[in-house]
């Protein structure tokens, strides 16, 4: 059974904007998939359909065998198993770093304060900023904030991590610290779907690269196949523009 299974996915906004038009994709446990494609091609929408942050217009989405399109499925429980990291971090500005990481553990996982705090400190150490526990998000650099966001998701013990351009809002000198954390996560065997323009990360971490255009998957392959030997003209054109 695949960890993520997406079949015949369609997402239409306002009846006219066809953001995703028939995507099939499966991701196995421990697999790292990088999604690339031109701006507006539906990468974010597709990713957000995987945890139903965006409800698909049509198609099937399943996480670890649980059918998310079934109205009986408790989405909150599934979402706790699917971490999501946003381009804009989206930390909670009114809470300290440690409270950011503890909130959902307590509310969703029903962990005691002590357990939640211990787990939060463990995850903050894992992303390399244990000393920032009592700071507020605004006191942190962008790279540090994004690492807190990753720790916040990891503290829920997710089966899957989704990343939507996690380094696009960062100054160049901070990109590496975030990518290093992600790389380590990939090496630890986390199942990951990553939308990014960081081709270096794709080469180093991805088992598979998916090229999307106009709401569809155009080409899929290993990083080597996609970057060095693309088959489709649209893939070649896109790569020539960004590399």
């Amino acid at each position: 059974m695949s960890m993520i299974s997406v079949q015949g996915l369609h997402k239409t906004f306002n009846k006219t904007i066809h953001a995703v038009q028939g995507v099939d994709m499966t991701v196995e446990e421990g697999e790292v998939v990088v999604i690339v494609g031109p701006s507006g091609c539906g990468k974010s929408t597709m990713l957000r359909c995987i945890n139903l942050l965006e409800v698909p217009t049509d198609g099937e989405v399943a996480i670890d065998g649980v059918d998310l399109m079934d109205k009986k499925t408790d989405l909150d429980l599934v979402r706790a198993e699917v971490g999501m990291v946003f381009q804009g971090f989206n930390l909670f500005p009114h809470l300290t770093v440690i409270d950011n990481v503890m909130l959902a553990q307590k509310k969703v996982r029903k962990r005691s304060k002590e357990d939640a705090e211990a787990e939060a400190r463990r995850q903050l150490a894992r992303v390399g900023i244990p000393e920032k526990a009592d700071s507020y998000p605004r006191q942190l650099s962008g790279g540090q904030q994004q690492r807190v966001a990753i720790a916040r998701s990891l503290a829920m013990g997710p089966k899957v991590m989704l990343f939507d351009e996690p380094t696009s809002a960062l100054d160049p000198e901070m990109i590496k610290e975030v990518l290093d954390v992600m790389l380590e996560l990939a090496n630890d065997g986390m199942t990951m779907v990553v939308v990014t323009h960081e081709m270096g990360f794709a080469r180093a971490a991805a088992d598979r690269v998916v090229f999307m255009d106009e709401g569809r998957i155009v080409e899929t392959g290993t990083p080597e196949q996609i970057f060095s030997n693309p088959q489709e003209d649209r893939t070649k054109l896109f790569l020539s523009q960004i590399l």
Binding site: M84, G88, N90, L91, F92, L103, A104
Partner: peptide, 25 residues
């Protein structure tokens, strides 16, 4: 909107997100 999305993606319900994330801000 990103605040609500972050809350929901962590598994917080609509009500919990409103109470613990949106309202205090």
């Amino acid at each position: 909107r990103g605040q609500t999305e972050a809350g929901r993606s962590l598994g917080l319900s609509r009500r919990q997100t409103m109470r613990s994330v949106v309202m205090p801000q």
